[in-house]
Write a protein that binds this DNA or RNA. Structure first.
Length: 781
DNA sequence: GGAGGCCTCGGAAGG
DNA sequence: CGAGGCCTCC
């Protein structure tokens, strides 16, 4: 560590770092060096001789934990490895596995992700004959989730008049019962959902004084990042763990609290002051990120919020450019203005594409922006979207791994009992579930101990079920004998998954196959090196020997980071929602869609609290910009296929005029005037009411990254089918999914004529020509 | 069992 | 409009 590392800090930052003992709250304004203070504080503790094993640092995302740990390692060296630094969920999962026996769970419990929870809830609804329109799984689970986050058990829920009344009033009196069923099904499956990791952690500490004692004693220093995002359960757990030494340091910014919709409770900041009377509060108010114009404009907006802590963010940076506000007449024009502006500023300036970000309130807005960027060949990357582990093929294989570790895992079992197809159909499965319900046994117990007389399942099917159970059992037995990679690849081939997907020669199939290979490669790397992020709860060293599959599976459900795979070309414009942009910074930022009912969202307009959260969201958006901020809005846009008129957002009026560029009238930065000229004809400007979208906007998009990933020759966007009447035997044709093939035969009469087409690698396919979209590649016979 | 049709719904999203 | 879930038909 550098000798005078404290000199890298300004006064409030340094005070916050040096004040290591006793309760501390750091209110960190946007761009004020929050991460720097957190990392320095931990490094400082280590420097002072505090054992890293006794420092607990909790974050919300894996990314934040990873980055911070990396930076601390940079300052303090290898010792940082022993820090307990991770997300709330991963740290608690680690502890819960260690103490699982206390609460009746196996230590290899499964962690259900949102899909698992949903599928379980759907199953429960069906079993109870409840209509999933009235009882929408996601909304029922939402009620359960917020109960758990407020530390309410199903019993307390059912005993709570207010909640029960609410449910009766909304016509869903069964939610309390569903809560109970859901919890017992999870328990029977040896599974916890994300909320259970918090709920059970709290109950573990509350009901087991010796356990509480152990962890209070162990964690002498506790730190919490993004404190404004904590929910009630997280808050109480932190308070409990920190109760012995009271060396609890929380860092946050009330002005950037944008997650109340998922349970974050901004009042925790106020409770914290009440709970710790000798609390020391530090305010980081100097912004190092942005120009005076940007900081001033953002301040003027957030000043409209009534609920906030007093704080004055300032900067010694230069004035910079004024904020641009640009009006357009359609979402398409908004897109071209943004794209055009990026294109020309990249040309004229010292900026790379990666210095630009385009932000929006809702994902649906990305379409017109993408189209515009693509037309100018501006490379971009969309953040968010499907994580690697959320892909179907990955989840299928992981389901087998989950079963190998914990055969009681009902969701995994249901997912793969007939995938790849092995003749155990829906009817048999329903019978098994009925048997499970009647006996109170888990689905696995029913299957594993399948009695001769079980509820009228045919002998042949029973045989198949037995084979399946024996296969899972054999995987289970191998867990400790083989290393993760050996077992994983054995499972992949023994179950037939690999073969199934290898035989699928469609572009999708090929990409699925590559993804499975990537997963297996990751496991191989784990087998060789291990990858545990957190030290073992007891503090002793990791056991020597094999890196087994169950060890690999421990944290995998918690790795939900959206894919951040670089295809080598990282110089791209970033497109993302404002929520995703929190914590990031860019030299130039475009905030789009500043219209009433969009930003602020119309769903936020009925309460002051929600409107203030929207305003904080806009504040977050503005403060992402370092040098230049551009805000756009349009007077009409397509929403759900319909063209609607839009009014400018009230937030625009809240920006103090002194920070704004003189008004830019609509069309001043007209695309036609500049680079547009070089590109294919585009209908003249006024996209106002009535005008249909042009063909290029109606086309389906294939993201640039995907094109590259698949070798550049998949162009779903350009696929145009030919008239089926023209197709005759002998032609070469192309199918959107199956690729190129040769028409072997045509039978039947138009419009019911059917073609037999031979596709390379796929064999003959029967295609009804009135449905199958075929493009003629070669008319020669 | 799988593909395609029909219906519904529509805010943001970490673990 | 487009995605996702369920249902139906072959």
């Amino acid at each position: 560590m550098e000798k005078h590392y404290l000199e890298n800090l300004n006064d409030p930052q340094r005070h916050a770092v040096e004040c290591t003992d006793g309760p501390v709250m750091i209110i960190a304004g946007a761009g004020s060096g929050k991460t720097r203070v957190l990392t320095y504080r931990v490094a400082h503790l280590i420097k002072k001789g505090v054992d890293p094993f006794s420092i607990l640092a909790l974050t919300f995302t894996n990314k934040a934990a990873r980055e911070m740990k990396g930076r601390i390692t940079g300052m303090s060296g290898d010792e940082a490895r022993n820090l307990w630094m991770g997300t709330f969920h991963s740290v608690f999962a680690r502890i819960l596995r260690f103490e699982a026996h206390r609460i009746g769970y196996p230590s290899n419990f499964t962690i259900y992700d949102t899909d698992d929870s949903r599928s379980l809830m759907r199953a429960i609804l069906k079993e109870h004959g409840l209509d999933d329109k009235t009882y929408k799984p996601a909304s029922v689970l939402g009620r359960i989730s917020s109960a758990k986050n407020n530390l309410l058990s199903w019993k307390s829920y059912q005993a709570n008049d207010e909640l029960v009344n609410d449910d009766r009033l909304t016509g869903r009196p069964m939610i309390g019962t569903l809560f109970e069923k859901y919890v017992s099904r999870c328990f029977r499956s040896g599974a916890m959902d994300f909320d259970d990791l918090l709920y059970n952690m709290y109950m573990l500490l509350k009901n087991h004084p010796d356990v509480l004692n152990k962890y209070q004693d162990k964690f002498r220093y506790v730190m919490v990042d993004e404190f404004q995002d904590t929910n009630h359960a997280q808050y109480l757990i932190v308070r409990k763990i920190g109760a012995r030494f009271e060396n609890v340091c929380v860092v946050g910014d009330d002005a950037q609290s944008i997650y109340s919709f998922r349970g974050a409770n901004i009042r925790n900041i106020l409770s914290f002051e009440k709970d710790y009377p000798d609390l020391k509060t530090f305010k980081l108010e100097q912004n190092y990120r942005s120009t005076k114009n940007i900081v001033g404009a953002a301040n003027s907006v957030i000043a409209n919020n009534r609920n906030q802590l007093r704080k004055e963010v300032w900067t010694s940076n230069g004035e910079g450019e004024k904020i641009r506000v640009i009006k357009s007449v359609s979402d398409n024009e908004e897109g071209s203005i943004v794209a055009n502006s990026i294109f020309s500023e990249k040309m004229n300036g010292d900026l790379d594409y990666r210095d630009f970000a385009v932000l929006y309130r809702t994902n649906a807005q990305s379409r017109s922006l993408e189209e515009a960027l693509r037309r100018l060949n501006v490379p971009y990357r969309i953040f968010g979207g499907l994580s690697f582990y959320a892909r179907k093929e990955i989840k299928d294989l992981l389901a087998y791994f989950r079963l190998a570790v914990n055969p009681s895992d009902e969701e995994a079992l249901r997912r793969v009992i007939n995938y790849p197809a092995r003749g155990i159909g829906k009817v048999s499965l329903d019978k098994l579930i009925v048997a499970s319900d009647q006996t109170g046994k888990s689905l696995w117990e029913v299957i594993a101990g399948l009695a001769q007389e079980t509820a009228g399942i045919a002998t042949g099917t029973r045989e198949k079920i037995r084979d399946f159970a024996a296969m899972i059992e054999s995987f289970h037995v191998e867990l400790k004998k083989k290393d993760a990679y050996e077992l994983a690849s054995h499972i992949a081939s023994r179950t037939g998954i690999i073969r199934e997907i290898y035989n699928d020669k469609t572009p999708e199939g090929v990409s699925q196959y590559e993804n499975l290979q990537e997963l297996l490669n990751g496991i191989k790397e784990f087998s060789e090196n291990g990858l545990t992020d957190l030290p073992a709860p007891s503090g002793e060293l990791e056991e020597e020997g094999l890196h087994t599959l169950d060890a690999f599976m421990q944290d995998i459900a918690l790795l939900t980071d959206a894919e951040s795979k670089d295809d080598g070309d990282t110089d791209k414009v970033s497109l993302m929602t404002v929520h995703m942009a929190k914590g990031l910074e860019f030299k130039q930022v475009f905030v789009t869609g500043l219209e009433e009912n969009l930003f602020p969202s119309q769903l936020s307009l009925h309460s002051r609290e929600e409107l203030e959260e929207e305003r904080r969201l806009f504040y977050v958006a503005m403060t992402r910009a370092e040098r230049r901020l551009t805000i756009t809005w349009t007077s009409s846009r397509y929403r759900w296929g319909k063209l609607i008129g839009c009014e400018p957002s009230r937030f625009l009026d809240e920006i103090a005029p002194g920070f704004l560029e003189a008004a830019t009238p609509s069309g001043t930065v007209s695309p036609e005037e500049t680079v547009w000229a070089q590109y294919p004809a585009r209908p003249k400007g006024n996209g106002i009411a009535g005008q249909r979208r042009q063909k290029f906007t109606a086309r389906k998009l294939t993201p640039v990254s995907k094109l590259q990933a698949s070798g550049g020759n998949v162009s779903a966007g350009d696929f145009r089918a030919d008239d089926p009447k023209e197709i005759v035997a002998g032609m070469d044709v192309e199918h959107q999914k199956f690729g190129q093939g040769k028409v072997v035969n045509i039978e039947g009469e138009f419009p019911d004529h059917k073609a037999t087409v031979f596709f390379q690698g796929l064999g003959n396919k029967q295609l009804l020509l009135k449905y199958a979209k075929l493009k003629i590649v070669n008319r020669d016979r």
